[in-house]
């Protein structure tokens, strides 16, 4: 079960499990983000490298126009994944 929601305040909310079977859906929704945005992980339970790939691609695309994603409210397990992958070097993580 995975959900991605964009609200009108520029916040992207992730929910459930972002695995390889959901990467396409997440990519499609994130393409709608064209300015700097916050991605709220509060209700995301799990992410795999497929999900990390989706976020890298979005960050690369946004950087070309001087924008970026800020990631917030990760659970400890997801925070460890980001730390091991050194995503702190390419994302602002709050």
């Amino acid at each position: 079960m995975f959900k991605i929601m964009l609200d009108n305040q520029g916040i992207v909310r992730l929910q459930g499990r972002l695995d390889a079977s959901q990467a396409e859906e997440a990519t499609k929704e994130l393409l709608k983000v064209t300015k700097s945005a916050v991605v709220d992980f509060r209700e995301l339970e799990y992410i795999s490298s497929a999900g990390l790939g989706v976020l890298i691609a979005a960050q690369k695309r946004l950087k070309e126009s001087g924008h970026s994603l800020t990631l917030t409210n990760m659970n400890n397990h997801i925070r460890d994944v980001f730390r091991y992958a050194r995503f702190d070097l390419i994302f602002k993580v709050e």
Binding site: S49, G53, Q59, K60, Y84, A85, R86, L89
Partner: peptide, 22 residues
Amino acid sequence: DLHAPLEQRRAGGLGIFLVKRM
């Protein structure tokens, strides 16, 4: 290469690396 700039970062190879780490 975990220290590569964003332009050169890719998801390929990251999954197996993280598995080995965990």
